[in-house]
Design a protein around this nucleic acid. Sequence first.
DNA 1: AAAAATTACTTAACCGTTTAAGTTCGTAGC
DNA 2: GCTACGAACTTAAACGGTTAAGTAATTTTT
Lengths: 338, 338
Amino acid sequence: MDNITIKMLAKELNLSTAAISKALRDSHEISTPTKLRVQELASRLNYIPNAYAGSLRRRKSKTIAVVLPEVADSFFSLAINGIEAIAEEKGYHVLIYLTHENLSREQAILKDFQSGRVDGVLMSLTAETASYQHISDLHEREIPLVFFDRVCEEVNTAKITTNDFESSYKATQHLIDCGCKRIALLSISHCLSISNKRFEGYEQALKDNQVAHEPINILCENDAVANYSFMQKIMGSPDRPDGVIATVEKLTTDIYLACKELKLSIPNDVKVVSFSNLSSASILSPSLTTITQPAFDMGKAAAVVLFKSLEKKNFTMEDESLIIPSELIVRGSTVLNA
Amino acid sequence: MDNITIKMLAKELNLSTAAISKALRDSHEISTPTKLRVQELASRLNYIPNAYAGSLRRRKSKTIAVVLPEVADSFFSLAINGIEAIAEEKGYHVLIYLTHENLSREQAILKDFQSGRVDGVLMSLTAETASYQHISDLHEREIPLVFFDRVCEEVNTAKITTNDFESSYKATQHLIDCGCKRIALLSISHCLSISNKRFEGYEQALKDNQVAHEPINILCENDAVANYSFMQKIMGSPDRPDGVIATVEKLTTDIYLACKELKLSIPNDVKVVSFSNLSSASILSPSLTTITQPAFDMGKAAAVVLFKSLEKKNFTMEDESLIIPSELIVRGSTVLNA
DNA sequence: AAAAATTACTTAACCGTTTAAGTTCGTAGC
DNA sequence: GCTACGAACTTAAACGGTTAAGTAATTTTT
């Protein structure tokens, strides 16, 4: 059976397609009895409008894109949840694109958006994104764009972030307060704004506390196997840190396993804080002190701002940036008997 | 600046829109010099075809939908990864829909697919899905559909599953071998095929080992807070189980926390096995014995089958069902010093 | 009672691309 | 020299809706 179209309804009811279209959209140009006839037939035949015909004509797709580095990370999956909650409420569809931290993939994805496929874009940059011509290009085409978490400072649009500097400062201060003398920061990028801010917070805390050593900013790979042996190397070296801040959730397992392997006790020999939203943080061995980001709320906030801009014209995105604070949750990886 | 269209290219080059279209698709009807002229101008002006015009005309959207209960679950996020990997390779776009285990939401989502929005659908049912008219409806519209993990037996299409019966049997046998006398199964549904199969495997193992008690199949809520107190109640009761199999990853945290609260030792007082893909399973306290599902491969396989069917006509989906085995990984929650 | 406005439609253009069915011209075949 | 044919296009219809503009009949205004 072929799909029901407006044309078929029109023929059946001896009306023009225009009348059908208007009746279905409850236009005042159509009389109530006619509307009822149309709506009755439409629902009886289970008429469902073709998604693309409408989108083509209205130049609106009721679709947004979410571009992110990966999905197997609790921050991003919670953020998707927040985004989806709002999109669903607004009757929008959500296209998802994963960059796998790959800049050229990100560029290709954004380029495609010039096809009119999406009305707006939510994104979190890759760890590689140092050039941003592709983002400016999109922005110039006037496709509403909201960054969340990993933002591009150079593009003037709404940015939903968390207080990375303060969180990192707080985490560092916490490690210092717990007696750490040599604290390392594990990053995945030297380009990302979040990496920089987290580094700066860490650096500032070291300085404010007159910690003797230079900042130790360790750049990790985008590969689980490589990172595990990397962690073993770092934790096995004679000048190993006695405090570690993982700026990425997925490094946590590597650190824990490397310490286990090397028979280093957490928190006795090494204290660990992770930027993480793992719901299992409290049942790790030992339970994990985390900087917990408001992932769901950030996704939600980003979506809210995007939809505001889709619904209103002359809307200035820049005024809508938002910083939602993270929380330091102290657990057993930094404090005994936490 | 407005978007470049085929019309504009045609005017610029004094050609018909048809010629442009054909030149861009490298048709033999167009001479090589003309093709070159067209392609040069198109790339110089950064022409990007309108996604919806093409989709409307070709009746193909190069888009698939993924419908799942939730995304904040490592099984599903890994499955998305697998799906996305194939979709990207094939140049398809991926729409994501979350049902939040809600049947009416699932129905609404599937209904929308009759709009021609997607060329095919990958899905995993909600825990509530007991009726399947909405799925049959979609299937009758000849929109290719592949189930993964949570399948609908009643609809005759490809199903990518894991060996739920055997895995559950194995998990139960393992607990019995570890000395458990009273083993409970924690489920989230009595409708789902996976729940039933996992129950049957558990039941069979109890029977084969002549375990004295009746099967204990505990239905949990779709709410984290409710489940935590529920777990406390169960683990605090006088006839509490000494072995627990969680058929859903997210119940693990509740069990662990309830046991901690009640000062029950895992694995001494209670042994725990979870169907889980948590990468942190090995660093939990104690590390968690899991049935680890081939989530990424299942997503990938489902996508592969879907694209096969999209590319070939007269393709019989039913022959493409696949069962990819899970793995029991024994760790500290069932065996001391694992 | 004539003019103006309102109601309830229809007609036709349009969104941007694809494609079946011409058309024109040059060349090959007989 | 005439037909046939292929090359390289163009024309126009189509995909399925939406919407500005037009129209005929009825109602309201003056």
